[in-house]
Design a binder for these strands. Sequence first.
DNA 1: TAAACACATGAACAACTATTCATATGAAAG
DNA 2: CTTTCATATGAATAGTTGTTCATGTGTTTA
Lengths: 120, 120
Amino acid sequence: MPEDNNAERCELMHVHQDIVDRVNQQMPEDEILFDLAELFKIFGDSTRIKILYLLFESEMCVCDIAQLLKMTQSAISHQLQVLKKSKLVKYRRDGKTVFYSLADGHVRTIIDQGMEHVAE
Amino acid sequence: MPEDNNAERCELMHVHQDIVDRVNQQMPEDEILFDLAELFKIFGDSTRIKILYLLFESEMCVCDIAQLLKMTQSAISHQLQVLKKSKLVKYRRDGKTVFYSLADGHVRTIIDQGMEHVAE
DNA sequence: TAAACACATGAACAACTATTCATATGAAAG
DNA sequence: CTTTCATATGAATAGTTGTTCATGTGTTTA
């Protein structure tokens, strides 16, 4: 006759205490892990991935990106703001047009590593 | 007096034709870029990031992960299925318990690269 | 066989997000 | 100053997603 149905335990722990200790030491702080997930979230959209790939080749203005990706200027601009907030791209203004470019070398490294996993 | 308000052009193109050609050549196929975004989407959730970090230390069963992260068994199991489908983790059964572990070395490399960007 | 345990899974709901539409800003040209 | 062009942005909407709850599956033990 079961007394409670609290499923929050599996015979104490299957792993040993030393592993739990190692985990608790090596685990980065929650805030760092949150930021890390936020970063990957930026790469988790194919429109943004395409924009970054374009910027691998050359700096570009919003309208060029929109044309190359066959999307509206508004959609691209919104995504560029997202990329800007995450410090993945930077921009410079030249008259009426704004040129965007990669902010960081890490961007390329991260995408290349992901590619290696995908292309298997 | 404006004749049309079609915003789908910016004086042909600001970039030059050679850049457009380079882009079209170097750009991977849409399907690849989609898969790449899907991969990063997996890393774009702090629960999954935490699970992967735990598995850096040791293989673990579902209940242990749930306890360490103070989350329900169901939530962890759902996320492990996501990680399994993406081939980021593998599992082995030992009696009643199922042990999960990292499937690939790329996982660690990708996360480490992301960390470098975040920890600045 | 029946009960208990570890895990998986379907449905439902809330939270988030990418795009569209309409409009605003800012710079250059007339 | 007014118009035009390039870009930015707020609101709205449709689609996606993470967690919970309830329940199902598979394994071990009594």
